[in-house]
């Protein structure tokens, strides 16, 4: 029963992949080796497409792998399996947090972690920048977009649309 197997395998990934979506990649390569659902080279293509389509990479890759394995139902089952551990564990954690939200120690720890989370965000941004800003035109566009964002607080969606149009117009 491929659906049960998919559900089980992606539940495992959801449970053991901790962090950003790309941490699921090694797990997916294991799947490629273990089953004949998809090959490692198909997986490489899937990762590339998942990075350049809307949606968080981790979800995109699970959906894609599920679809390759067993069609639309496979996609749904794999995605469901991936998010199920998150939903269960986060609901439990959220309850705990509500209980301890007034606790001074919890408060101090969370406050102390915030600068580190900002470092994580900056690091993620640097990695995107390293790939995206590979020429002077790109750097110019980055500077122009950032200045616009600082001056006019518009919706990110607007800037994303504008950047897509600029990308096509400038043949980046």
């Amino acid at each position: 029963m491929i659906y049960l197997l998919l559900l089980f395998e992606f539940f495992k990934i959801g449970l053991f992949a901790i962090g950003g979506g790309l941490v699921t990649v090694p797990f997916l390569f294991d799947l490629a080796e273990k089953y004949d659902w998809f090959t490692a080279s198909e997986l490489t293509d899937m990762i590339a497409i998942s990075e350049s389509t809307p949606g968080p990479i981790g979800v995109n890759m699970a959906t894609f792998a599920g679809f390759k394995s067993a069609g639309i139902m496979g996609a749904i089952v794999a995605t469901f399996g991936l998010v199920l551990p998150s939903v269960i564990i986060i609901i439990w954690v959220a309850r705990l947090m509500q209980k301890y939200s007034g606790n001074a120690r919890t408060h101090a720890i969370l406050e102390g972690i915030r600068p580190a989370v900002l470092a994580l965000i900056l690091f993620a941004g640097l990695q995107v920048a390293r790939i995206a800003l590979n020429g002077s035109l790109e750097i110019l566009m980055f500077a122009a977009l950032l200045s616009m964002m600082r001056l006019w607080k518009q919706s990110p969606v607007l800037y994303l649309g504008l950047a897509a149009v600029l990308g096509i117009a400038l043949k980046l």
């Binding site: 965000i121 995206a132 964002m149 504008l162």
Partner: peptide, 16 residues
């Protein structure tokens, strides 16, 4: 092309 533009925008949004 569009995604090259979008990636630049994602970097700028994160900086912002």
């Amino acid at each position: 092309y569009a995604f090259a533009g979008i990636r630049i925008c994602v970097a700028a949004l994160i900086a912002d």
